[in-house]
Deep mutational scan, measured.
Amino acid sequence: HNLTITQGKLFFHYNPKLCLSEIHKMEEVSGTKGRQERNDIALKTNGDQASCENELLKFSYIRTSFDKILLRWEPYWPPDFRDLLGFMLFYKEAPYQNVTEFDGQDACGSNSWTVVDIDPPLRSNDPKSQNHPGWLMRGLKPWTQYAIFVKTLVTFSDERRTYGAKSDIIYVQTDATNPSVPLDPISVSNSSSQIILKWKPPSDPNGNITHYLVFWERQAEDSELFELDYCLKGLKLPSRTWSPPFESEDSQKHNQSEYEDSAGECCSCPKTDSQILKELEESSFRKTFEDYLHNVVFVPRKTSSGTGAEDPRPSRKRRSLGDVGNVTVAVPTVAAFPNTSSTSVPTSPEEHRPFEKVVNKESLVISGLRHFTGYRIELQACNQDTPEERCSVAAYVSARTMPEAKADDIVGPVTHEIFENNVVHLMWQEPKEPNGLIVLYEVSYRRYGDEELHLCVSRKHFALERGCRLRGLSPGNYSVRIRATSLAGNGSWTEPTYFYVTDYLDVPSNIA
Rank of each mutant, 00 (worst) to 15 (best):
F298M: 12
V359Y: 08
R447Q: 08
V214D: 00
H461L: 12
P244R: 13
K236G: 12
R459G: 05
S341G: 09
P238T: 11
E452Q: 05
E404K: 08
S458Y: 12
M427C: 06
N339T: 07
V329Y: 15
Q429M: 15
Y230S: 07
S251G: 02
E495V: 12
E249I: 11
G264H: 09
G476K: 00
V331S: 05
V393T: 11
P270R: 03
I366K: 09
C468A: 07
A407H: 15
F215P: 00
K287V: 14
D385S: 01
N422Q: 05
R353L: 11
P238K: 11
L369R: 02
F246M: 15
A399G: 11
K271H: 13
Q384S: 14
E417H: 04
S486P: 00
N295T: 05
M427A: 04
P413H: 08
K357G: 08
V443R: 00
I438G: 01
R301V: 08
S305M: 06
K460V: 15
T347L: 14
K361D: 06
T343A: 14
Q380V: 04
C456M: 02
C269A: 06
F226R: 10
P431W: 00
Y212R: 00
A395H: 06
R301S: 11
G472V: 10
S344P: 10
S251H: 14
E282C: 06
A395M: 10
F499Q: 00
T288D: 06
L293V: 11
C391L: 05
V507R: 15
W493V: 09
A220G: 15
R447I: 11
Y445D: 00
H294N: 03
T502P: 09
N360E: 14
T415K: 06
Y445F: 03
L505R: 05
I366A: 03
S509W: 13
N295F: 15
Q256R: 10
S283G: 05
C231A: 01
R390M: 05
V299L: 08
G467L: 03
F372I: 02
V334H: 15
V334C: 03
C266T: 07
P244L: 08
G234A: 06
L213M: 13
D311E: 15
Y500K: 08
S367K: 14
F355V: 09
T303M: 12
F337Y: 11
P244E: 08
V358S: 05
D503R: 07
R319F: 09
R459L: 12
Q384V: 15
E265H: 09
P354L: 11
Y478V: 01
P475N: 08
S341D: 13
S223T: 09
V297I: 09
N208F: 10
G476I: 00
V424A: 11
T307I: 04
T272M: 07
A394G: 14
T401G: 00
P496S: 05
Y500C: 15
S315E: 10
S223F: 01
D450Y: 05
F499L: 14
G325L: 04
A463E: 03
C468R: 03
P205R: 10
E389H: 07
K357M: 10
D323P: 04
N255G: 07
L487H: 00
C269M: 06
I209L: 14
H416L: 11
P403W: 09
F215S: 05
E417M: 08
R459S: 11
Y498R: 10
Q275M: 08
R318K: 11
I209P: 11
D250A: 12
V443K: 00
W428G: 00
Y445I: 02
Y441H: 05
G325V: 08
E247W: 08
Y375W: 06
H211A: 11
L235T: 06
T494G: 01
H211C: 01
M427E: 15
S268F: 04
P434E: 03
V324E: 02
S492C: 09
S398Q: 06
S284K: 13
I377F: 06
G412V: 08
V345T: 10
E227W: 07
S304F: 13
A484V: 03
S474C: 14
C266S: 14
S509V: 15
P245Q: 12
S363Y: 07
S509A: 06
R459T: 08
S251N: 14
R483K: 13
S268G: 01
E420Q: 02
A263W: 02
L237A: 12
S243G: 08
K278P: 08
G325E: 06
T415P: 00
K271F: 09
F215M: 06
V480Y: 07
C231N: 01
T415Y: 14
K302M: 13
Q252G: 11
P300A: 10
L369E: 01
C391F: 02
T288L: 11
K302V: 11
L505M: 02
F246P: 11
G374I: 12
N422C: 04
N435T: 00
N206M: 03
K287A: 03
